[in-house]
Design a protein around this nucleic acid. Structure first.
Lengths: 136, 136
DNA sequence: CAGGATCCGCACAGATACTG
DNA sequence: CAGTATCTGTGCGGATCCTG
């Protein structure tokens, strides 16, 4: 996932929508990206520490990197207040807001199909168990 | 991304939809997963080697692992023909088909907003350049 | 308070070789 | 043809220390 936008010798394919797929995956194929986006979508404008608490498992490093990437791509706006102690606010841009919709669609899908997937996993597990122990 | 479903000491959060988010990301946060899914969605039933050619950059290892994961979660059906030489067909299950829709939504979003993102990146780049060179 | 810099482990991804 | 087994590198992600 990581080297997606660097080496990618897959680049030889005919060209078309595929690069976009790569972009999309490179962007959202990140646990923290989605979670940070979600926090901002739900709670609106948040400060650095509020975000860290909202996402909860995230480290400073990952929060900073994720925010930087999101800002760079125009998903979040960063506002610095020249006060002491420092204060920095993060909020979704219009672009970021539009991204939330398809993301929620994916989340909804997951929510609706969790048990179907769980069942599939159980079926798969028992199947491979049988295959492994034909008769004992 | 990878260890998402193993250790995850984030597990302490209150609980709710968050685990589902993790599941979704763990599943789709994978370059190959999306590409394999796409290939099957576009071309229908495919054999192992056909898939490898369709996805094109994928290694045997990754193809096998991806397919196994997809099968385990009930997204693809695997059919083995007891012939020689061996033949194995892969196709989307109904569940897999429903997943394609939200995925396409995300792809569409990416397609529509690529240039907006590109522009944002340029703006961000020039902004950080100015910050670095106040006057030269 | 917000974040930069650094060290390190570990899981994932790739390439290669082998098998039924 | 359709995989499995194994080795190795890389870069992500966490923890920690430090600064404005």
């Amino acid at each position: 996932v990581g080297a997606t936008n660097k080496k990618v010798r897959t680049a030889e394919h005919a060209g078309g929508v595929c690069p976009a797929v790569d972009e999309a995956v490179a962007l959202m194929g990140n646990r923290w990206t989605v979670l940070v986006l979600g926090a901002l979508a739900n709670q609106g404008t948040l400060r650095y520490n509020e975000l860290q608490r909202a996402v909860d498992g995230i480290s400073q490093r990952m929060l900073t990197l994720t925010l930087k990437k999101l800002e760079e791509n125009g998903f979040v706006k960063r506002t610095i207040f020249p006060v002491v102690p420092p204060r920095v606010d993060y909020e979704l841009t219009p672009l970021g807001c539009t991204l939330v919709k398809p993301l929620e669609a994916l989340l909804d899908w997951t929510l609706e199909n969790r048990d179907t997937m769980a069942e599939a996993r159980r079926a798969y597990a028992s199947a491979s168990n049988k295959a492994r122990r034909p008769s004992t």
